[in-house]
């Protein structure tokens, strides 16, 4: 089951999808905020969002799982 991991440490600024959404390769799923800069995180696989592991405002470390995609 592919997972979307945080490529950099930061705070979760916005989550652009919800559970059950169909997503395509290169869709923007999450926007992280690090050093006062918004960094969009893109989807690596096509599929359906099955679980969102973080909520807006959470602090995440590098490699933390953000979203599980089926």
């Amino acid at each position: 089951m592919p997972e979307l991991v945080a490529p950099i440490a930061g705070n979760v600024w916005k989550i652009l999808v919800s559970v059950g959404d169909k997503v395509e390769l290169d869709d923007e799923l999450v926007i992280l905020e690090a050093l006062k800069m918004e960094t969009p995180i893109y989807c690596d696989d096509a599929g359906t969002v099955t679980e969102i592991k973080v909520k807006e405002g959470d602090a995440v470390n590098e490699d933390d799982v953000l979203i599980v995609i089926d």
């Binding site: 950099i8 440490a9 050093l35 590098e62």
Partner: peptide, 8 residues
């Protein structure tokens, strides 16, 4: 490259 995260 939109998957390039150079910040750190």
């Amino acid at each position: 490259n939109r998957r390039n995260y150079l910040l750190m």
